[in-house]
Design a protein around this nucleic acid. Structure first.
Lengths: 142, 142
DNA sequence: CGGGATCCCACTGGATACTG
DNA sequence: CAGTATCCAGTGGGATCCCG
């Protein structure tokens, strides 16, 4: 699985330990709702990709990010970056020059979020095939 | 943080190890896109909540699920459950009785996905406050 | 009880044009 | 270059009705 070369052996091992553990119960429904909402926004498609790109690249300008995230419109990129900045995930440095220059990089908080996503990436990479098989079987029956 | 009582100490420890690790680079862009898409659908708001509910409760009927996921419409629940079944995450047992009886429970694959989400839950629970602070600061400046 | 079928609106998000 | 503003199509998702 090529995608796994993305992670260190330690991360993959940790992800497996995760997958084998059984999440216990007991959680305040209100907290749960807040957390679910937070995950919901933060697990957005473009946010994920920006997070990953900046994790790799460090600091990038607006246009560089747009170039390297295929399919994103400038509107969505602006919107995603603003949201991430508001949530404290990225830092935005504006250089008062002309033409304008703006640089983006992850905050420490943003970096930790990238780490938290690792388990999901590992799961998806490992189980992509099984999901596709399940889908094919389901569609054949219908 | 109350939400953390949801997890075992081992899971929390693993999540922290995650957060401190630095994801390396090098990944096939096509695989990356596939994986990102898969995460995108699987990280959907309702899917997450159903996953979590069934992880706790084991097996539940349609109406029981609807009752315990606040705010979900019957349409979205049906749609979410079909999608999850198609992806091989849940099993659907139909009892040919009248009135109808249908039971849902996670497959092994679905269980492992629940585990993979743990890191995200831990991150969100731990950093909810910090995100809210960042947001307040951002809004005050604007 | 567990949905399927319809209607309909609100919002998401793309394309385009303009600007400091 | 890095946006903002505007317009517009597509669709996600709620409400409602119905049926086996």
């Amino acid at each position: 699985m090529d995608a796994l070369t993305r992670f260190t052996p330690e991360q993959v091992a940790a992800a497996k330990r995760y997958s084998e553990a059984i999440p216990p119960t007991d959680i305040d429904p209100r907290i749960e709702r807040l957390v679910a909402d937070l995950i919901g926004r933060v697990a957005d498609k473009w946010t994920m990709l920006v997070l990953e790109l900046l994790t790799d690249a460090g600091t990038l300008r607006f246009t560089r990010i747009a170039e390297r995230i295929e399919g994103i419109s400038q509107k969505m990129l602006t919107q995603t970056l603003r949201q991430m900045e508001r949530d404290g995930l990225i830092e935005r440095k504006i250089y008062p020059v002309v033409p304008p220059k703006v640089e983006y990089n992850l905050t420490p908080l943003g970096l930790t979020l990238g780490g938290a996503f690792c388990g999901l990436w590992v799961w998806a990479a490992e189980n992509l095939g099984e999901v596709e098989r399940a889908r094919a079987a389901f569609d054949k029956k219908a």
